[in-house]
């Protein structure tokens, strides 16, 4: 992954617009947050292989990171805190936000083929 270049990512988002795509969307603060700090809550959510079609999407710079919104016929896909991206060898747009120790805080990925979901599958 490398630091997001807004114009480049915008082109990738545009390329998927109007096509059925699979989305992986995730946020987490880790399974140990409340173990190391009693006052902290573990917070996390993910959806893997949501099958959606967005009419358009936009990436917005917030200074420290980026927000992405994808407009669906009946709603939105939204992620905040994205910092890094890559287009992998399967032409999937992978975006993530990491903290200063390289830990993932948020991820938004878009693909025209389903993401691996079998326990054993890996690429």
């Amino acid at each position: 992954m490398e630091a997001i270049v807004r114009e480049d990512v915008q082109k990738e988002i545009d390329a998927f617009a109007g096509k059925p795509v699979y989305v992986h969307l995730e946020t987490t603060n880790g399974a140990y947050a409340s173990h190391f700090n009693e006052k902290a809550h573990n917070v996390g959510a993910f959806i893997r292989n949501a099958n959606v079609t967005y009419s358009h999407g936009k990436i917005i710079s917030t200074g420290g990171g980026y927000r992405v919104g994808l407009k669906l016929e009946l709603g939105w896909v939204y992620a905040e805190g994205l910092t890094d991206y890559e287009v992998d060898e399967q032409n999937r747009l992978l975006m993530a936000g990491h903290d200063e120790q390289g830990r993932l805080m948020v991820a938004l990925e878009i693909s025209q083929t389903p993401f691996a979901h079998e326990a054993d599958s890996h690429e």
Partner: peptide, 21 residues
């Protein structure tokens, strides 16, 4: 395979899709 782990290396060398590998 710890495929949903939060640590991606430091500096980051893995992503959500390659972490299990």
């Amino acid at each position: 395979l710890g495929d949903m782990g939060r640590n991606m290396g430091n500096p980051v060398f893995a992503n959500r899709e390659t972490l299990s590998t």
